[in-house]
Design a binder for these strands. Sequence first.
DNA 1: GACTCTCGTGCGACAATGTCGCACGTTGTC
DNA 2: GACAACGTGCGACATTGTCGCACGAGAGTC
Lengths: 249, 249
Amino acid sequence: MIQSIERSSAVLRLLAAGPDRLRVKEIADALGLPKSTAHGILRTLEHVGFVEQDPRTTRYRLGRGLLDLGDAGLDVNELRSRALDWADALAARTVEAVRIGVLQGDSVRVIHHVFRPDDTTQAMDTGLVVPAHATSLGKILLAYDVTALSLGGLDPYTRKTVTVRRELARALAEVRAQGWASAVEEWESGRAGIAAPMRTFGGLVVGAIGIYGPVERICDSRLRPRPALVEQVRATAHAISRDLSGPRR
Amino acid sequence: MIQSIERSSAVLRLLAAGPDRLRVKEIADALGLPKSTAHGILRTLEHVGFVEQDPRTTRYRLGRGLLDLGDAGLDVNELRSRALDWADALAARTVEAVRIGVLQGDSVRVIHHVFRPDDTTQAMDTGLVVPAHATSLGKILLAYDVTALSLGGLDPYTRKTVTVRRELARALAEVRAQGWASAVEEWESGRAGIAAPMRTFGGLVVGAIGIYGPVERICDSRLRPRPALVEQVRATAHAISRDLSGPRR
DNA sequence: GACTCTCGTGCGACAATGTCGCACGTTGTC
DNA sequence: GACAACGTGCGACATTGTCGCACGAGAGTC
């Protein structure tokens, strides 16, 4: 049994039982814990949105996160604004177009899009909905989402599109193993993408970020994603994840 | 930030987001955790009632404990049945009457009572409601309950009853520090009690158990609770706490 | 119906992590 | 205005949680 989780549940029960907000000292005394330990638990619980601290009275009460456990506490807009600067930087470094997507039903909704720096003739992709099983963004989101793979028919878009469910499952397992995904000419011929997951507290995946462009620039001569680009995408995703797991508000 | 708590929140969110029950593997993969780690977290969460595992499908879903955070997941009857055997043993070893109480409003409700082994002329105390500030059971419950000390007037019952709120607060702090409480002729003259807290997961106090009897047997010549008896009560309370934190159902 | 594969579970060793004690700065109280 | 009590942060230690591996069982498949 994990001690800190047991203690957390006790704290939550205490807050639920108590009529009004509680002080750190009260909680610590009630549970027989040092102030410091109780404080650490409370900080974490606040961090994940299960409790909230009234900044004026410094007292703690139950947080909204308990009520709406559904989302990770951050909506699409917040995710977008958080990832915005990072996406720009990624586009600048890789000189490729950057997309950020979240899962919406069985498909991927592109919630942010950065043009490739030196290319002016591009369409605005924000708001676009793309298939999940044929894009790198989608593979990431499917790989880490448990509701996934309940999707309907795997429509083919090119000759390289994965349409066999078993094959897709194996691909997703590989994505999980290596921590990033690619899709080479599986959605549009001549185009390829590399993507990585953006995570919140505890590793929960809330979105995907990736680059997208002509095969000849994304991949090497053997049509394998260039390691340098993969590393850029991964590093950016990691940075955003750290940001998302960081201070709220 | 405490890692395991963050992960727990991610697990809970995952379960809340997913439409149906989830497998260990799915959760582990979604969060990028080893199966074993995810399993440990799930075991603990099940332990505290935040998730439940369908014994047939072995899948996990959100538990009732999240909904009714109010009580510790165990009602008075369960607490009673859990502590029953221990109470008998305590009575046998100390040769004193044993009482188990829970907080009910500002008072203590005695939910279980064991007669003193060699005494036949005793009244049945189960169901009795006694004042909190003048009994050892009550002091324990007040010391560890955060809603406490909001109680009304501190009625005096004997000359030794603590009626000054400040004095009571200091007494409760001492109770917390030493982990047990006593009340010597504060409720009924000639009678004294020694009590200790019964705890669940994380240290949450759910009740008090103690012995009660004539001063001359409970205390030494200086009216101090006999250390041997204190140790017996504490040991029993600890044993019950271990039991309560053990396997559910 | 037997096989194979995948999953849930348990154990042990390691090291990372959470815990604890102490001290600071501030707030609320007498 | 002075005191006390609280919330907060830091660091060292040791406990605790994590990870890898292996067993056994169940379901799906041929």
